[in-house]
Structures are given as C-alpha cells and as structure tokens.
Amino acid sequence: MSKAIPFEIFAADMAQRKAAAGDLVVPRNAGNRRTPSKRALLKAIADLGGTW
C-alpha cells in the first residue's frame, strides 16, 4: 500500500517532470477501433452541432 502525499508535493514533482521531459506532442486517437455504440454516440454529438 502506498503512502499518501500532499497535493502540493505531488504538483511540484509533476511540474519538475514535465519541465525535464520538454514539450511532448501526443497525437489524437485515430478512432480506428471504436465500437459501433461509440461511433453512434459521436455521430449524435456531431448531428447536434458538437465536436469531439
């Protein structure tokens, strides 16, 4: 079981790691493996004028 740490310490550690890693560019998911229900949901959102 891990020990809880204060959020301030966690946030400072994350900021340090992010600075060390530099600017990471993560490509968006192409969606090639979406289920039919997910495709239907995204189509319904698009039909209402929303973007995903």
Rank of each mutant, 00 (worst) to 15 (best):
S2V: 06
L48Y: 12
A44M: 10
I45H: 03
M14R: 08
G50Y: 01
P36M: 07
D13W: 15
G22L: 09
D23I: 13
P6T: 04
A11I: 11
R17C: 15
D23P: 06
A44N: 07
P36V: 03
P27S: 10
L42A: 08
R34W: 07
G50L: 06
I5F: 03
I5T: 14
S37A: 15
I45Y: 03
K18P: 11
V25F: 05
M1I: 00
K38N: 08
V25D: 13
A46E: 06
L41T: 05
T51R: 15
L42W: 00
F7P: 00
A30H: 10
R33D: 13
N32F: 10
T51V: 11
A12V: 15
W52G: 12
F10G: 13
N32I: 04
A20R: 13
Q16T: 15
K3A: 00
N32Y: 09
L48T: 03
S2E: 02
K18G: 15
R39V: 00
I45R: 02
L42D: 02
A44G: 06
K3E: 02
A12S: 12
G49W: 04
R33W: 05
A20H: 12
A46V: 09
D13M: 12
S2W: 00
K18S: 14
M14L: 14
N32M: 01
K3V: 00
S2M: 01
L24M: 05
D47G: 10
F7Y: 09
R34I: 05
G49M: 07
F7N: 14
D13G: 11
G49E: 09
R34H: 04
K43V: 03
A30F: 09
L41V: 08
I5D: 01
L42H: 06
M14G: 11
A19G: 10
A44T: 07
Q16I: 15
S37V: 07
A11S: 13
K18T: 15
A40R: 03
L48R: 03
K38T: 06
R33F: 10
I9S: 13
G31W: 02
K38W: 06
F10K: 10
N32A: 05
M1L: 00
K3G: 00
K38H: 01
Q16A: 14
K38G: 01
G22E: 06
P27F: 00
